[in-house]
Design a protein around this nucleic acid. Structure first.
Length: 281
DNA sequence: AAGTAAATCAACCGCAACGAA
DNA sequence: TTTCGTTGCGGTTGATTTACT
């Protein structure tokens, strides 16, 4: 007996996601957290024409509000190179050390940038040993203003969908309760990740350093909440743990990654801004 | 201006791993 | 222990954009 497809492929749409599909998925994920069964998500979220696998990929690689966007920093590249020398092509493991970066993003960056850089330095990207013979005078292909091009492209490509999502996300985040939504799905069905966990709250973070905002890339989805009283408190989410006010969501902040692209209110520093900032400069 | 090559990255595919029954 | 359903991962593809001729 052959393996069953991950979903009923008949009638399923392929290709790029539409704004509406994004909106539905974000709506669902922000309201319910990460539902335990991706297969059920298309139906529950209303993105019925897409399979659960697609939804998972879209969310983890693109829509998650905690994602960083833009080119990897030099530090991040060095981390990737170092981890790759130890782990090989285990992109998800490598990504787990880089907050806000996805395995797909790192894999793409490796293949398009880092490999070339290593070869240019005379290092075999596969073995991390010196190339034999070393490629001398290896010329990195001229890529005029590649980062500018990248930023421009991302702006043009993503600004509209995310802008459209903005109002929707705001509405969801300000909703007083998590109740029965799409197609009767009930929020009582234990989510794996609660909505607060996809937001980073860090009252001890540097207050609105200019650098934090300058690192914001054009496609970053920065979710910043002002009306935090409208959301359950951290301790609500964390089974009564009083230290929850320092909860920082996904990552350990001790490993040197401080520019999480989340902007803090200039005035209070302890509350998030009342906007969804999409990195539009 | 038009055609082509190169670069980029979102999305797809298929397999492995895992857990439940 | 085996079977089945599901998720996660890594490799790959293909659409899009930019650079070059």
């Amino acid at each position: 007996m052959g393996r069953q497809p991950c979903c009923d492929k008949v009638g399923l749409k392929k290709g790029p996601w539409t704004v509406d599909e994004d909106r539905k998925l974000v709506n669902f994920m922000l309201t319910n957290g990460q539902y335990s069964c991706w297969r059920a998500v298309p139906k529950l979220a209303g993105t019925i024409s897409l399979c659960g696998k697609s939804c998972r990929l879209r969310w983890t690689n693109y829509l998650r509000p905690d994602l960083k966007r833009g080119m990897l920093s030099e530090h991040e590249e060095n981390v990737v190179i170092d981890l790759h020398s130890q782990l090989g092509n285990r992109w998800s493991k490598i990504a787990s050390h880089l907050p806000g970066r996805t395995d797909n993003e790192i894999k793409n960056h490796w293949n398009t940038h880092i490999k070339k850089k290593l070869r240019k330095r005379g290092i075999d990207p596969l073995t991390h040993r010196p190339l034999t013979p070393p490629i001398e005078n290896f010329q990195e292909p001229e890529n005029h203003n590649s980062s500018d091009v990248h930023q421009k492209r991302q702006t043009e490509k993503f600004i509209d969908p995310l802008t459209v999502l903005q109002d929707e996300m705001q509405r969801i985040l300000e909703a007083p309760t998590l109740e029965v939504i799409n197609n009767g799905f009930c929020a009582d069905e234990v989510p794996l990740i609660e909505p607060h966990e996809i937001l980073i709250s860090n009252s001890s973070a540097p207050c609105c350093s200019s650098s934090s905002s300058t690192t914001t890339s054009n496609t970053n989805v920065n979710i910043l909440l002002e009306n935090s009283e409208l959301l359950p408190t951290n301790s609500d989410w964390l089974n009564g743990d009083d230290s929850a006010t320092n909860n920082v969501g996904f990552w350990d902040m001790d490993d040197g990654f401080s520019d999480l692209d989340f902007l803090f209110d200039d005035i209070s520093c302890s509350r998030f801004l009342p906007l969804l900032e999409f990195g539009i400069e």
